[in-house]
């Protein structure tokens, strides 16, 4: 055996054993981090399996889910930006149409109670139907989409592998997408490691100061380690909501005009532009908004009214710097670069 043959054999052996190791490991479902509350989504009704996840992933990247087969879920929910849409203030859909709202990051979805900026969808299983049917997103009839999949031998085989039957039902279609989405757990940021006392969880003094500011001034809405309290609030981004009434369009309750769901701040450095309408390009602009740009309207969140009558959240320059330093610790590189989720 000459040297190079030896090396090849060695590499082959290492490679094979790596593969074997991976293969031997049972498929792990979604990570349930110790610093998160229990999930909202009932995983027992739709256990995540390797085949179901693979099918859901294929569907997430499948353009046949749109009317003219040009748009996939993944076109506006891109893995490396926490499944949000960089550079797009509002979603860019079929026929080059634009929606009214920013494509929200898709992460930690099994902990969400309601979905979309207005909370119009109460169950993860039903989320894809909204995008599929939206006339400015995928504009397809789901019955037509299912029929397309039924004509496809590869899908038939994948549904059989995932659910034990080739029959492609609405439930299995949506449950496989839920299985993919359930896996999109981001909980391994430096902040998480800090909270869980794991190695790699060191925060600098600036970051720790930012965390203290955050807890004092932001956490009443961006609550828990999900960084959202799942509520709907008017954060003073506008004072006229006639273009988009937010939660009111779903609830029809007058007190909900101009209220939008509090978004999570995980991976916030890559989910720009910010706010329901993508108004702000940078985190500094967001903090400037809260410090001095809040606009008044009847449904403005009471937390943005200070006792002295001023609007917003008092933040000085140092606090802003510290907050941004802290927010960067919520970036989760393992999630953003997870090859299981990327195309």
């Amino acid at each position: 055996m000459n040297k190079s043959t030896y090396l090849i054999v060695l590499f082959a052996w290492i490679f094979a054993s790596c593969g074997e190791k991976e293969h031997d490991q049972p498929f792990a479902g979604p990570q349930l981090p110790s610093n998160f509350p229990p999930p909202v989504y009932d995983l027992s009704l739709n256990p995540v399996t390797e085949a179901g996840f693979a099918l859901g992933k294929k569907l997430f990247y499948e353009k046949a889910l749109s009317r003219d087969s040009t748009i996939a879920c993944a076109d506006c929910h891109i893995s490396f930006s926490a499944f949000s849409h960089p550079e797009h203030p509002t979603s860019h859909g079929i026929d080059n149409l634009f929606g009214r709202r920013n494509a929200i990051a898709a992460q930690n979805l099994i902990w969400a109670k309601e979905f979309f900026w207005d909370g119009g969808v109460p169950n993860l299983d039903l989320v894809p139907l909204n995008a599929i049917q939206s006339p400015v997103e995928m504009d397809a009839n789901p019955a037509v989409v299912l029929e397309r999949l039924r004509q496809n031998a590869q899908y038939k085989a994948m549904f059989k592998a995932a659910f034990g039957t080739e029959e492609i039902t609405t439930a299995h279609f949506l449950q496989s997408l839920s299985q993919f989405m359930a896996m999109l757990v981001s909980a391994n940021s430096r902040y998480d490691k800090y909270v869980r006392g794991e190695s790699g969880g060191d925060l600098s003094s600036d970051e720790l100061a930012g965390l203290a500011v955050f807890k004092a001034k932001c956490a009443s809405c961006h609550d828990t380690d999900l960084f959202t309290d799942n509520s709907f609030r008017n954060n003073g981004i506008l004072n006229d909501f006639s273009f988009d009434r937010g939660r009111n369009e779903v609830s029809q309750l007058p007190e909900d005009v101009g209220k939008f769901r509090v978004p999570s701040l995980r991976n916030v450095t890559v989910t720009d532009p910010y706010m329901h309408n993508g108004k702000f390009k940078t985190l500094a602009m967001v903090l400037d908004h809260y410090a001095s740009g809040v606009q008044d309207s009847p449904t403005l969140d009471p937390l943005l009214r200070q006792p002295d009558g001023t609007l917003g959240i008092p933040l000085n320059a140092q606090e802003k710097t510290e907050l941004i330093a802290f927010l960067k610790t919520l970036d989760d590189e393992t999630f953003l670069r997870d090859v299981r989720f990327a195309q």
Partner: peptide, 12 residues
């Protein structure tokens, strides 16, 4: 959950 929506309750 979607698994309980069949027949006239199946959204698609």
């Amino acid at each position: 959950p979607i698994g309980e929506r069949t027949g006239v309750l199946d959204p698609a």
